[in-house]
Simulated assay, not measured.
Amino acid sequence: MMAALTTRFLALVLVVLAVVSRVYAQEVADGQGHTVSLTIERLRQTHVLRVGYGTAAPFSFTNANGDISGYSIDLCREMAEEMRQILQLPEIRTEYVFRTPANRLQLLNEGGMDIECNASTNLPERRKAANFAPAHFFMRTRLVSLKRNNIHKLEDLRGKSVSVVLGTVNISQILQLSRERRLGLVTVPVDEVERAFELVNNGSVSAFAMDDILLHEMIARSGHPQDFSVSEEGLGEPAAYGFMTRINDPEFADLVAKALWRVYRSDRMQKIYDRWFMQPFGEPPHSLNLPMSAELRAMMESVE
């Protein structure tokens, strides 16, 4: 009796594992020795691309009209049209999925979204959990603080508090630098970029460590940009932003890269960039006046 129950239990376990592996596997054999991307096959059937977005203007955010907007969103729309042409589909509709820095990898690899079109940094440790598309921006981590606090570099924060966003590389950067330099920093983790910036604005923390482009954008629309200062010192080397796709679906990642290269080569690319970095946008209208970096221009000119 016990042997029979054990056999049935093991059989049930094997069935469960088979179902779970099918859920997480995004490439399967087609019966002819070829692999088939489940993401692409679902796209062929539904004509719906599930796009992850966040609250990181000017990359992806909800505008005053309630629409999902931003530089990354515009690029993903153009990318989707190129994908439609490559796959020869009658249409591709975009379904937006809200994600946070803390849950983005889980949503991506469990199938909640097909691609994250926001501002995720392409790092070696992240490449173990996601595929990255060709870069669409380059940034560096810096500190934002109120000018009256006279914080120009990391050393000026000795023994003070720093807000960080969960799921970002900034946490590990701050903790590592605090240990190496024996700064005794107190980190205050929060879920959202806007919340971390507000902690600086209301004096709850001394500084906020985040990607410099996001800091400049939040300062520009704060209503009192003259009150803030961005550190002269960068924390770490410049890094690339890239759209993330599932780690176990390289065929879909290749399709995304091919479609993006077409956008990067077109005259649409400069127009999209200028709309978000050289012209006023948002509420209240504000401009970042940030020309395309040499790193980004070189990367786009080198795509094949």
Rank of each mutant, 00 (worst) to 15 (best):
L185F: 06
L12I: 11
N150I: 05
E78Q: 12
S178Q: 08
I92M: 06
L17S: 11
G203L: 00
F252G: 00
I92Q: 06
D267E: 14
D30R: 05
R275M: 06
L185G: 05
A80M: 02
T7N: 11
R8C: 15
V51C: 05
V51D: 02
T187E: 07
V303E: 10
S287Y: 09
G234V: 04
D156L: 01
M83K: 01
L296N: 08
R142Y: 04
E95G: 08
Q45H: 15
R44I: 07
R268I: 07
V165W: 04
R246T: 12
D212R: 11
S287I: 13
L255A: 02
V303T: 11
D30Q: 05
V28Y: 11
A129N: 14
Q106C: 11
K258V: 09
V162Q: 00
R195I: 07
S145Q: 03
Q279S: 13
Q226Y: 10
T35E: 14
A133G: 12
I247M: 11
T35R: 13
M139F: 15
H216A: 13
V164S: 03
G66L: 02
D227L: 09
P90N: 01
R221E: 06
M269N: 08
E295P: 15
E41V: 05
G111S: 09
Y71H: 09
S302N: 15
K147W: 05
V20K: 08
I92V: 12
L87M: 12
V303I: 12
N202I: 12
Q26V: 10
M269Y: 11
K153L: 03
H224Q: 15
R8A: 15
S222R: 02
V13C: 13
